[in-house]
Write a protein that binds this DNA or RNA. Structure first.
Length: 223
DNA sequence: GCGACAG
DNA sequence: ATCTTGTCGC
């Protein structure tokens, strides 16, 4: 039961985004408690970008305990094009999730959710394929405007044409904020609560940071 | 035409 | 994303 065949060209990929965006559901995340299984996922690439290394880390206690991990090494078959990142990363991420022994309650991606030109970023695409609540947590901006964010912990809306699509969230005072936006089965408020609630005295929420680190370890150990 | 542009 | 060492600052 696949969501769609995989595109080859940028034009096909964009058409798919337009056709899938209406399936994205923006609603509150399920209740977030100490027992919630929060997964973080990320990828690393070879210098020549021939292969990519995907890792998903499932945690509980807001990232303080690792429950399961899974990874996948795949050839890269789609170029990096701003706005089409998911077509480059979702295949490897799905392969990694397929090796998981548990189903996470929510997934956090290193990329945008609906803070995207066609409101269909990586977190939306992955969330739809997995049919699991997903949130985008990117390290930089793809689009949108926002007011200055005070140096202390907090958040401010990220707007596109005046409408809020996500939030800049500063987890640590004085540290650069992350760009948070709903991916699927999530809304702005609960997505921000998730990112601020996660453990980790670093810029990235612990689940995503753990996946990011594991991704480079996998690359270093891969044959 | 000139920038901007998740990873 | 990846290439890369030391170094300025708290």
């Amino acid at each position: 039961m696949s969501l769609h065949p995989w595109p080859t060209t940028a034009a096909e990929a964009e058409a798919l985004q337009h056709g899938l965006v209406d399936r994205v559901r923006l609603e509150p995340l399920p209740p977030l408690t100490d027992a919630t299984l929060i997964a973080g996922c990320d990828l690393a690439y070879d210098k020549d970008e021939a292969r990519c290394y995907a890792v998903v880390v499932v945690t509980r206690a807001w990232g303080r305990e690792v429950v399961a991990t899974a990874e996948a090494v795949r050839p890269v078959e789609f170029p990096y094009v701003p706005g089409l990142l998911s077509f480059r990363e979702v295949p490897a991420l799905l392969a990694a999730f397929a090796g998981l022994s548990v189903t996470p309650d929510v997934v956090m991606c290193d990329g945008q959710g609906v803070a995207h030109p066609r409101r269909f970023g990586l977190a939306c695409h992955l969330g739809l394929w997995l049919d699991v609540p997903a949130v985008g947590c990117a390290k930089s901006r793809l689009l949108g405007e926002h007011d200055a964010l005070p140096a202390q912990v907090g958040s401010t809306p990220l707007r596109v044409d005046g409408a809020p699509v996500g939030d800049l969230v500063r987890r640590i005072a004085g540290v650069k904020p992350v760009y948070v936006s709903p991916g699927h089965r999530a809304d702005r408020a609960s997505a921000v609560a998730l990112v601020l609630g996660c453990a980790g005295a670093y810029r990235l929420p612990e689940p995503v940071r753990l996946a990011d680190i594991a991704t480079r370890v996998l690359r270093a150990e891969a044959p």
